[in-house]
């Protein structure tokens, strides 16, 4: 693929993955998206194309950490005009989608002393890392299950706090690092640490499309894209911008979405029936449903939203019984049926 990525709206199939990514883009607080599944199913293509589709971000002009101009979390780190008390301008920057290479070093991830500046100019300056680049965007880890433990630890910390705290090389820096963590991988190659798995708000099991027509359509579009990516993009420009508009509207509408007590009850009952650990399941389910309702242009969340999203939210949160052959999705379906009947 050349500099341009595949248009998001031109992706055939993968409805679940696309939905999950859109919801996470509408409300980053949902948490990240985990896409586990077969090879060659377009996981990477879908994830990369999303960032290009989204409306550009507003960030403080000149801030190396891309902090939000209206952020109230206090001043940003040194290097940001805001922290230096200067008058700030607002810049518009495309949503970042940062690739986290498997062999990434701690320094590269969190940022570290700028060695060049130190050596050449004798200046001690902080060089922001990938976490800064990913701020307000997406941090994508392919083969996330093969990521090394100490890197995973850092990611977990930062994803939980939304802040990257660097205490080394004589630096004491904290800067905002809010990102949507997107991981993909093939479970056959190794399982994911439960703590990390739990951090992902939504999980999608990506399967290869088995409908021949769908497969042919994928091939055709890929061929058309490779042959002339400009023309291909032009053909999907309208669709892309319509979707972009929908996401923007959903983001604005998000706070005003109402959630009925009935819906809360349903979520609680469902999670109880499934015995999912902690309360994160319910919370995420409600958050995701709000985002979904907003995306659909509704003002209230309905029980059907929960039914639709439950598999995305809960599949990876069920206590796994490695010895049972029953897939999590079947358990969710059963619990859904039971709860639905009661409601």
């Amino acid at each position: 693929m050349t500099s341009k990525s595949f248009p998001f709206t031109a992706i055939v199939g993968q409805a679940d993955l696309r939905l999950a990514l859109l919801l996470a883009a509408i409300d980053p607080r949902i948490g990240g998206v985990l896409a586990f599944g077969d090879r060659g199913t377009g996981k990477t293509t879908t994830i990369r194309s999303l960032a290009h589709m989204l409306p550009p971000d507003k960030a403080t002009f000149g801030c190396p950490y891309g902090c939000k101009p209206d952020s109230t979390v206090g001043p940003c780190a040194p290097g940001c005009p805001k922290s230096e008390g200067k008058k700030t301008k607002i810049a518009s920057r495309p949503v970042s989608c940062v690739d986290l290479p498997l062999g990434v070093s701690e320094d590269r991830l969190t940022g570290a002393l700028d060695i060049e500046k130190a050596m050449v100019e004798g200046k001690k300056e902080f060089q922001p890392g990938l976490l800064a680049d990913a701020n307000n965007g997406f941090l994508y880890v392919d083969e996330v299950n093969l990521l090394e433990d100490h890197i995973v630890d850092i990611l977990l910390d930062v994803a939980a706090s939304g802040e990257n705290i660097v205490e080394k090389d004589g630096f004491s820096i904290r800067h905002p690092a809010r990102f949507v963590l997107v991981g993909s991988g093939n479970p056959e190659e190794g399982e994911l640490r439960p703590q990390l798995q739990d951090r992902f708000g939504l999980a999608v099991n990506v399967t290869t499309p088995m409908d021949p027509r769908e497969r042919v359509e994928i091939l055709k579009r890929r061929e058309a894209f490779e042959a002339d990516s400009e023309a291909f993009h032009a053909a999907y420009k309208h669709k892309n911008s319509r979707l972009r508009g929908k996401v923007t509207r959903a983001r604005t509408a998000l706070d005003a979405i109402e959630v009925d007590d009935k819906v809360f009850h349903f979520a609680a009952e469902l999670c109880l029936a499934l015995g999912s650990d902690g309360l994160r399941g319910e919370l995420t389910l409600i958050k995701a449903s709000r985002a979904y309702a907003a995306f659909e242009g509704r003002k209230t969340v309905v029980v059907e939203d929960l039914v639709k999203l439950a598999p995305l939210v809960l599949t990876h949160r069920l206590r796994q019984d490695p010895l049972s052959d029953m897939p999590s999705s079947a358990r969710i379906e059963r619990a859904l049926d039971a709860c639905y009947e009661r409601a």
Binding site: D38, R39, G40, M210, P212, R215, V216, L219, K220
Partner: peptide, 25 residues
């Protein structure tokens, strides 16, 4: 490359039990 060629490759791959979408391409 006609549409039919792509259909052909797509079905051939399935016949060989290859599900990755990269292969028919």
């Amino acid at each position: 490359i006609s549409d039919r060629d792509m259909e052909f490759a797509s079905i051939l791959a399935l016949q060989f039990g290859i599900y990755s979408m990269r292969m028919p391409y």
